[in-house]
């Protein structure tokens, strides 16, 4: 079975929503992950706070961001096991992140060749 990374892009929740709303999103996320875990297909994941994020470029250049080309920034990711790209996409479709307009989930297969 392969592993896939599901990358969430959305706006900074702290800027656009109340703490109560954020709590609701958290619960929805927990439920969604719980469903994947119940199938034994959740590997791990992390939330990434927006505050302080940086991008390092060559020659020691460091910028704030990444808030350049699109306003949605990576807000977190999970790694799942799936038999196919389609199955991973099906998992991604259930993500509560997609309830927010303009948000997205990127699905990428993990390259296991470099052991």
């Amino acid at each position: 079975m392969d592993e896939y990374m599901l990358i969430f892009r959305h706006e900074d929740g702290n800027k656009i929503a109340s703490p109560e709303q954020i709590q609701i999103w958290m619960n929805q996320t927990m439920e969604w992950i719980g469903g994947i875990s119940a199938k034994g297909k959740f590997v791990g994941g992390n939330g990434l706070p927006f505050e302080g994020s940086k991008v390092v470029w060559s020659q020691g250049v460091v910028t704030d961001g990444p808030f350049g080309e699109i306003k949605e920034t990576i807000g977190g990711y999970i790694i799942v096991k799936a038999d196919s790209f389609d199955e991973a996409v099906a998992f991604a479709k259930g993500s509560p992140v997609l309830l927010g307009e303009g948000n997205s989930v990127e699905v990428r297969k993990i390259d296991k060749h470099d052991v």
């Binding site: 592993e3 990374m5 699109i70 996409v89 997609l98 989930v105 990127e106 297969k109 390259d111």
Partner: peptide
């Protein structure tokens, strides 16, 4: 991990596009 180059992006309006994020020149390699 390294990520394979191909991928899919699912948007909130339900559209699914191929490849990593098209709007961003650099894609995530790992």
């Amino acid at each position: 991990n390294r990520l394979e180059v191909s991928g899919k992006v699912i948007k909130s309006d339900g559209t699914i596009t191929n490849g990593p994020y098209a709007e961003i020149k650099e894609s995530i390699g790992g």
